[in-house]
Amino acid sequence: MEFLVASAIGILTAGGLYLTLRLRTFPVILGISLLTYAVNVFLFASGRLTVGAPPILTKGVEVYADPLPQALVLTAIVISFGMTAVVVMIGLGAFLGSDDDHVDDQPESDDAEAEGTS
């Protein structure tokens, strides 16, 4: 089970990294989202994996999953929504303003060429 979770974290990270290195805003945003999943699961897993013992206090139950990483990850999920929304807005604003959704600065000469041809 630990292997499954660890490999899922690794695969999410790899996919996220690859997409983050793309050249257009949309795949980069999706890549960051994948990285967010990876980080959240990673943090969650720091409480070690426990099956069938949610941290809801019940009479007669002694073993519970670690509640602390869960609380931290819970707020992280909500905040990451806010941050994704901000990044999307910035990307969208840039695209609407310049009709260009490249992530990297475009070389100056290309711009001049584009203006010359259009």
Partner: peptide
């Protein structure tokens, strides 16, 4: 990057 996070969490 993926291998590193895998190794670390595993």
């Amino acid at each position: 990057g993926g291998l590193a996070t895998f190794a670390l969490s595993y």
